[in-house]
Structure formats: C-alpha cells, structure tokens
Amino acid sequence: MHELSVCQSMLRQVEEIAQREQATSVERIVIQIGPLSGVVPELLQQAFTIARCGTRAEAAELVTQTQPVRVHCLQCGYDSDAQANRLLCAECGDYRTRLISGDELLLASVELTRN
C-alpha cells in the first residue's frame, strides 16, 4: 500500500535529475529492490503506471533488479544465500549473521533524452 508513496518519491528524484540534465523525457528508470526492503516490485510497477502520468517519465520503462538475500556469518565468516525469514548461516547454521544483500531500495540509474 505504501508503494505509491515510494513511487512518488522516486519520480520526484527522477524529475530533479531530468531537470538538472536538461532532458526532455526519461526513457528508463532502473531500480534495485531486495526482498527485505519492504517494497513489493509488482505493486511498485502498478503504482508507477499511475504516478508517472504528467511527468517527464510518462513514457519511461521501470526496470526492477531484484537482489538476492545473502548473509555473512559472524561466527564462521562464511557468506551464503538465505531467505527473507531465515537468515541463518548455510555453513554452520548460526543465527549471528549480518545481511550483506537483500534490503536494497535504490534508484540505480536513469536513461534520459535531450533534444
């Protein structure tokens, strides 16, 4: 439900960049979203189709890159894949891990057209 807020915030950032770069339109917006970011990519896509109207990104494509959930074990030092609700070390099973990827909520890049 908060994806529309996230999307509007993203579009304000994109508009600022487009203005700074004197672009007439935005062709593509690339974002990185991890499963632990709290944002659902599909809902963000839906929100985007509404929120982009009337902006320079009206015809832009929104590309979502999903980052894998990975943890670093603070006990044995091993890096492994994990699941959003099971962040245990795959090597030794310890719970004392640190997330190294999977909570991203990033505007990675934008592609613009200048006239």
């Binding site: 996230v6 304000r12 950032q13 990033l106 592609e111 613009l112």
Partner: peptide
C-alpha cells in the same frame, strides 16, 4: 541524444 546516468541513491532519499 540519449544519456544514461548512474544514481545509486535510496529511493526514499527525500
């Protein structure tokens, strides 16, 4: 005149 710009900012930077 297409230009790609790397941003790498949090989506909720505002």
């Amino acid at each position: 005149d297409h230009v790609a710009i790397e941003v790498l900012e949090n989506l909720l930077s505002e």
